[in-house]
Design a binder for these strands. Structure first.
Lengths: 185, 185, 185, 185
DNA sequence: GAGTAATCGAGACGGTACGTCGTGTCTTGAT
DNA sequence: ATCAAGACACGACGTACCGTCTCGATTACTC
């Protein structure tokens, strides 16, 4: 179910993708760097995308510990900061972007896995908030997460703009309090 | 400043990217399909990403007319729906995803251009809202756009989930009114 | 001294070589077809050529019964016809050609074995002819065999030409009677 | 109709086939040795066999000048000696054997070409002999050639035996004078 | 009938070469 | 000035077999 040098292969995969991006990631390169033969990699993963997917799932690189600051606002802010950090630091940024590229372009790759996994763990934040009475149980937590995470992706990756110091605070403020639109229905 | 068959080249580029994704888009394929020699393409665009970028800028495919419904809420909802439609329809979805892939992986490509262009036109919505007194002039409009647009991307592309019927309404509601957090600062 | 499924292996070997030629013969293919593991074959024969060699030696396919027609001329004609038949019929032709290819290209394979074996049995023909007084005992029988067998190979395999009806008769006539050269020494 | 470094490619091909036999001849090896890229070779020849075939046709290696000694017997003896020399000398032997292997195993390769070409030039010998009155015009010259050439191949290559000193004389004697069979029809 | 070889199947592995595709460069000659 | 045509070096692709290796599982002979 796994090649003998799985760890070396995954490390090489992530190193290369971090260094050269998704296009610069080649099976041959991974084989070279991990001291394994090309055919061994093909024996276990059918494509570059699948290999990267497997490496990401096993990697602690994209791991995520849901913050627990005592308040929903604090937790969400911490979450936004964590995503921002992930997408700002060169090594993880490249990996995250590559993951996106791979996921988006290869339907055979279960792109949902990354996000579903992560979202499952984020649920805690909202469960605690509901328990504390901070959040209406009817609220859809995924909407909040998507609004916030999406904003970071758009700003940092799509727009390639740096985040302002209080981006996290403002964004969380917007989704929790609204921006104050006079025509509230 | 432009090859003689520019239109044919751009059409071929977008057709191919829609049909086979970013990876399936090749310079040779474009040359074939547009009846142009490979060298001609290289003479004008340095890379696949640059070609795609140019094609996208000229294309009406991703064009965008800022909605004017009379209210900020209505305009934003329409905007979210427009983005959702773009990312849901097979032809434009593929192109958008490819554009993302290209932008994200090629720093030489001015990814900001797409989004800056678009955002410039979205500004109208907020200017009108401010004029109507619906929106605090101090509000950062880009934050609103990023929250909403990001949520659609995350949900549709990253998570590969269909949008619910009232996604646009709920999302706009959240950013305008907040979700009702008891610990509002 | 021999694997348990030797017969199945040899059959598979000859089937494959007949069907796909020497290059199309692979150890893995033989293993598959004979229901044996690849390692088992390697345990017993060091190479494709050795395996084919062993299969040929054991096979009745290339077997040969020296004809006995009562006259040297008749025997030789029958021998030529037998060789011609071997090299003309699709199944044995392929095998013979493959054997040649293998033998010729693998010194470790005792190519002499096939021909020495065969020649030993052909000796009978000449011994009988000498006993009958048809043939000068000083004549080198191997020369006769080589002239005749070689002519068939050249014509059928090298030149890829069909044999004429009376090729055997003419060839035997030539070596027994000469072609009538006025300058006989 | 021909790559720019055709000569280098052919040289490398023949060198390699002489050094390592037909199986040791690889397209990649030829590419390396001739300073050409692998794809260039594939552009011009569809297979190893085709490449070798082309190299042989252009090579002077297997070239042949029909001898003219003044008598048919002398010419034929010289021809046999020439073939023997070709098949005995290590460099040409390997090439000849490889050519045989290639020709024999690849129907797409026009094996007849080598032999037909050669035979066309051998015709001279017989035309002269007929003019001199040495040879019955009704005699089939191809039969003589095949008998003699075949005998050399069988003895030297198939049997892997060295030729005796007077092999050529004896063989020519046999086909011209017959071996003296008492039952001559 | 148990014990001990010999034999085998399964399958991972490093490796070589395959034949193909696309890249981006170059030159030549036509328009 | 722009282009088509096309040869080319190059890098990587994904595949097929090679021959080797370990590990248990079967045989099948021997005592």
């Amino acid at each position: 179910m796994a090649p003998r040098k799985k760890q070396a292969i995954f490390e090489a995969t992530l190193d290369l993708v971090a260094a050269k991006g998704y296009d610069g990631l080649t099976i041959e390169g991974v084989a070279d760097r991990s001291g394994v033969n090309k055919t061994t990699i093909y024996r276990w993963w059918p494509s570059k995308a699948a290999l990267l997917g497997a490496a990401l799932v096993e990697a602690e690189l994209l791991e995520f510990d849901p913050p627990d600051t005592g308040s929903l606002r604090g937790d969400l802010t911490a979450m936004v900061d964590a995503i921002a950090k992930l997408l700002d630091d060169p090594p993880t940024r490249e990996v995250a972007v590559a993951a996106l590229g791979a996921a988006v372009r290869h339907p055979e790759l279960d792109t949902r896995r990354f996000f579903a996994d992560r979202f499952a763990r984020e649920q805690e934040i909202f469960q605690r908030a509901v328990r504390r009475g901070e959040l209406d149980p009817a609220t859809d937590p995924m909407l909040l997460v998507d609004l916030l995470a999406g904003a970071v992706w758009i700003r940092v990756i799509f727009r390639d703009l740096p985040l302002t110091e209080n981006f996290a605070r403002d964004a969380v403020g917007a989704v929790l309090d609204g921006v104050g639109c006079s025509s509230a229905s």
